[in-house]
Each structure stands twice: as structure tokens, then as C-alpha cells.
Design a protein around this nucleic acid. Structure first.
Lengths: 353, 353
DNA sequence: GTGAAAGCGCTAACAA
DNA sequence: TTGTTAGCGCTTTCAC
């Protein structure tokens, strides 16, 4: 392979327009102190020659790299990819993140990092040193990983922590898990349910706790009991199955169950079927995440939509703002989630009501 | 934001090891002409200081960028992302491509380009000039787009055309669509089916035609008629619905249908239900792609698995090999697909058999 | 086998 | 408002 050099450089443009390199640079970067006429002339040459600045060279000379790193958990992401169950977290991140990046002339680079690895810092450093990104987006469970947060804080690089409430280095960006759980719970209460079970997600994710909190809060405000109605899960189908079985075999079984993700809701549907319960007539189910599978279940699942695309998009905006030297927002940024109504919720059965 | 400079550079390493810059560079790039002892000393300094070479600087001085661009069709990709139907083409590409890249110290950058846009060249040029990738992976329908292929050929950059048979610039890499269609058809014939309908995909994709060819070939070799059994679709659910309805309302309806993708197979299932036909007892269905939804249909779909991850992985290998100056393979590289058996195929109904 | 010098494309700092 | 100079971190010559 022959070595490739930039075909058209700033030099060609400068020569063509009959100006200095610096003037071209100013035009590229939209800097002030260039006369309109000059600017136009340079722009004409740029267009004529099809010039595009080299990110490498820009980065080299100490300017921006126009690269934003989106970091996800390696193990979980690869497991999801291999499972092919339709989990589309990555797709939604790209949808929101890439498009927003493109709007601002940035590019999003997707990276996988091990949460548990004792080389986290080395992995991160490698990515940062190699790519020199202008900002980093952290997703759960990395967002609250003290080691990662501390390391990034020391790198003097703007970063957003998606799904985090904690103060500290970096910009936290919440998807309002507690509020969503409250919304789902109130929705069920509004339809007459009083015994509402909850299947929690993995402890490794802070959002699991927040979702439980929201459920508890909504139950409390309606003076409804929660005892024995909380079951631990870990987001896996198997854990959802176990949890659902325990809940549905309670002497006084719940008339509705909220599952902390779609897989566990799917398992709940299956257990209900197995026990001869019809959804939604005998049992109502609400799930979290709203991944593609909600369309395909029998009945389709009413679900809390995790606004991943919107969140990633906002994260990019926050990073670009930070890049420009703007202050980080004083308040925690919250992207709220909607409840999408489908077919898995009905009033509780008359016999129990 | 303060300007960030590389924390540890080749200079620091050179100073620490007491050698010249050049020697460090040689060690980094694993070049010959360095004594083992020297190499070891330098490597020790690299590890100690946590040095990682800057891709920007490497690229600047005319070496590789260690970046591989994966290009997908913007319109279709975004539509899939928004539809949230679980299409996981992108995920599978990342799975295969990113992991293989990581193995070789490369990174995969995912880009979207408009097929129809008259600015294709400009968009491509922008990506290439900005990123200076070492290679490009084209996916359908870009793989056989003459404008794109011609443009890339002129850029002196290795590129792979996934899902392409055509000779010419770039390295074609086939997923054996014709063979897969033949496999699916033979599989049905083996189970006793004689009237096998086929729903084709969009003309915009060459693979649509190859799948039809495979079906035709398998039918021909068994001396089975194909007349009236081929219906056009465009990969959309709606088109699948129309096609399935026409096929199933034929005076002599098919006992099996092969749909060129999962969405159209899903539609076929729905039409069958609507017409009072049970799958698989009255009608067998095989779909293409094996996206996540195949698990969730009633019954789960027997499907041809498109080996996207394996193909992306191979594409990366081909590019890295080309980068090293190796000859492109003389033969067309073919990644073959498997048939995954689930619940949508049975022998034809006795009344027809 | 190792080192010194030049230059990649661009921008920051300064000068005019 | 515009141009000049130096240097970013690295690799490629070309000496030694």
C-alpha cells in the first residue's frame, strides 16, 4: 500500500486563494477578524478544491479533535450482541449521539471498557491517548465507578455520566428512574391495583435502587403495603422467572407486577401463563426499557421507555458546551421517560378487587 | 477548557530509557534492527510511564491511522433505529468488526452515508480526509454503487465490499445469498413441499436477486414449478403482507413460503393467521436474516442466519492484510450462512400432500 | 544497530 | 485585519 498524504491541504487552499495559511485557518474555524470578502474568497477555494481539514493535524496543533468517546461496558454489551434478543441500547445511543455529533461537526467513537478489570485505567488511558477525544460519555455501570470517575477527573477532559445522580467530577445526566417507577406505579394504582409487585434489577446498577425507591414512594403515598412484594432480580430472564414465580405464588398474590427491564417482564409473562393466569385480565405487567421485544410479546408490553437517544444527544450537547468553556449546568440534568401504553395492563380481576 | 497536550510522549520515553526518539519509534512499531536488550529497556520505560502513541501524530507523519471506517446507508439505518423493531445489523457489524479491530490494535469508526445523495462523493471525501482511515468497509446497498466504488478506487485506500460479487476495485465479500436461498428451498423440498412461494426483497439490493436465483435453482433441480410463486417485496412489513396475501390466495396456494427478510416473514405469519391457516401445520415459513424478532413470533421462525458478525470480522482482516501490502485474494471470499431450525416448518398438510 | 534532521498539516502566539 | 514563526508527536530519510 502506497503511503497516502492529504490530497488537498491548507497550503493548496492558501495558494489558490492567494492568502496566508493563517487566514485559511481562520476561515475554517470561523474565527472573527476576517473580512467578509476575504472569507468568501477563501471559502470559494475550499469548495473548489474540495478541501477538508485533517483531524489529525488539527489535534496535533493543540486544537480540538472533534471526537467524542462513548464508553460502554464490554462484558454486558458483547453479551447483548451475542444473545440477539433485540436489546438496542447501543443503537439508541448511536442514534442520539451520532446525529447530534454530526450537527456540530463532531464524530462519535464507540468504545468498550471492562468494568471489573483492574486495568480500567490503562484501557481508558490507551483510548484517550490514542484518540485524544474532546469529551467522554460514560454509561451505567461506569457512570458511578469511582475509579473511572477519579481517573477522568485527573485527565482534564469533559465527561458526562449518564444515569448518575452523584455529584462530583463530570456532568451527571439522569434518566429519572425514580420518577419513571413512580409514574408506572401510580398508573397501576389509578387503574385500581393495590397489590403491586416489583422485580428489581442488578445491584451493580444504581438505577436499580432508584426504580425501587420510586415504586416504594408511590405505594407509600397511596398507603399501600409493599411487604413481600419486592423481589430481587439481575436483569436476566432467569432471575425474572424466579422472582415472578415467588411473587405469583404468594398467598395473596399481586394483581400487577412491574419488572425493572423487558427481559424480566417477558419472564413474568411466561410464568403467568404457566400458572394459568391471563395477562392482563388476571395480572397486569409493566416493564422498563421498551426495547424491541415489547412489540412481540403476547400481549404487547406496556412499558416505560428509556429515552436513551435523547439522553445521548443531550450528553453530546453538554460536552460540546463544556468544550467551549461554558459552565456545567448547576442543576442535575434530567431526561424524563414516558410510559407507553400497550396491552399488558387492565384493572385487577373483580374477584380480588 | 484548558488545552490538553499529550501527557507522555515519545520524548519522555526516550529520555527515560536514555535512547533516541528513533529507537523508541522502532520499538513501538516492532521494527527490526533493534537489539533485544535495547528493546526490553525501552519497553520497560513505556510500561513504566504508561506511554501510548498518539494516533494523530502517527498519522501526521505518514504512518497508519489504525482507523477503519464502516459505512452504512444513512436512511435505512436511521429508520431501523427509530422503528425499534430489533434489527441488529449494526450491532452485529460492531460485534464482528470492533472485536477483530481490537485484536490488531485498530479501531472501527461507524459512519452513515446517503445512497441517493448527489453529494456522496463529498460526504465520503469529508470522512476520508478528516479521519484518514486505513481502510473502508462498504455494506449494501453501497457495495455495488458505481459512483462510490469508483471514487474509493481513486483514493488509493483499501476497501471491502460486503455483499458483493462484482469484480472491480475493492475486495468483494459475499454472504452467499444464493447458496442460502438454495439451502432453505432444499430444506423445504426435503420435508415434502412442492409448492414453495418466495417473497423477494428490494431491487435496490443485489442480494434480493441472488436470493431469488437460489430459490429458482433449487426448485429447478427438483423439477418443481415456480410460476406465480414469486412475489416482489421491498423488505417492509407492508410489502410482505401484500405479497403473502397474493400467494396464499392463489387457487393452488403454496404450502411453504420463504421470505427474504424477517419483517416480511412476520407479515406472512400474520396473513396466514388472518386467513385461518396454522403455521407450521398448514403453512411452513422460512425467513432470512435471523434478527431478534425470530424468537418472539408465534411460532418462532426457522431462519437463514445472516453471518454479519463473521463477515465484518473477515472484512477487517482483509483490510489489514491489504494494508500490509498483501495481495487481495484471487477468489471471491464467501462467508456462508446457516439455517437455524425453529418452529415454523413442518411437512405439508396431508390433504395437499 | 543507532542517532540526527526534516517534515507531515495545522493552529497559537506574536508581529506587522 | 492579515501574515510570520514555531512547534505539536511522530516517522521517514539519511548519516554514522
Amino acid at each position: 500500500m502506497a503511503r497516502r498524504r492529504q490530497a488537498v491541504t491548507i497550503k493548496h487552499v492558501a495558494a489558490d486563494a492567494g492568502v496566508s495559511l493563517q487566514t485559511v485557518s481562520r476561515v475554517i474555524n470561523n474565527e472573527p477578524n476576517v473580512r467578509a470578502e476575504m472569507k468568501q474568497r477563501v471559502q470559494a477555494s475550499i469548495d473548489k478544491l474540495g478541501y477538508v481539514p485533517s483531524i489529525a493535524a488539527q489535534r496535533m496543533s493543540g486544537s480540538r479533535s472533534y471526537l467524542i468517546l462513548a464508553i460502554n461496558d464490554r462484558e454486558r454489551t458483547i453479551a447483548d450482541w451475542r444473545a440477539r434478543q433485540g436489546t438496542d441500547w447501543v443503537d439508541q445511543m448511536l442514534l442520539g449521539g451520532m446525529l447530534k455529533c454530526a450537527e456540530h461537526g463532531y464524530r462519535m467513537i464507540f468504545e468498550l471498557i471492562d468494568t471489573h478489570d483492574d486495568h480500567v485505567e490503562r484501557e481508558l488511558l490507551a483510548a484517550i491517548a490514542a484518540l485524544q477525544p474532546d469529551g467522554i460519555i460514560l454509561t451505567p455501570p461506569h457512570s458511578d465507578n469511582p475509579q473511572i470517575v477519579a481517573f477522568l477527573a485527573g485527565q482534564n477532559i469533559p465527561f458526562v455520566r449518564i444515569g448518575s445522580h452523584e455529584d462530583g467530577a463530570g456532568i451527571p445526566l439522569s434518566m429519572d428512574d425514580e420518577g419513571s417507577a413512580r409514574t408506572a406505579t401510580r398508573y397501576l394504582i389509578g387503574r385500581g391495583h393495590a397489590r403491586i409487585g416489583f422485580i428489581a434489577g442488578s445491584d451493580e446498577y444504581n438505577l436499580s435502587g432508584w426504580r425501587v425507591d420510586g415504586w416504594r414512594a408511590a405505594m407509600a403515598e397511596a398507603n399501600l403495603p409493599t411487604e413481600a412484594l419486592l423481589e430481587a432480580g439481575d436483569f436476566s430472564y432467569a432471575s425474572g422467572e424466579r422472582a415472578a414465580r415467588r411473587l405469583l405464588q404468594l398467598p395473596q398474590r399481586p394483581t400487577a407486577i412491574i419488572a425493572s427491564n423487558d427481559q424480566m417482564a417477558l419472564a413474568t409473562l411466561e410464568v403467568a401463563r404457566d400458572l394459568g393466569l391471563t395477562v392482563p385480565d388476571d395480572l397486569s405487567v409493566i416493564s422498563f426499557d421498551n426495547t424491541p421485544l415489547v412489540h412481540f410479546t403476547q400481549p404487547p408490553l406496556t412499558a416505560i421507555d428509556q429515552p436513551i437517544a435523547a439522553t445521548a444527544s443531550r450528553a453530546v450537547e453538554l460536552i460540546i458546551a463544556a468544550q467551549k468553556g461554558e459552565e456545567r449546568p448547576a442543576e442535575l440534568t434530567v431526561i424524563s421517560a414516558d410510559l407507553v401504553e400497550r396491552g399488558s395492563v387492565a384493572p385487577p380481576p373483580a374477584s380480588i378487587r
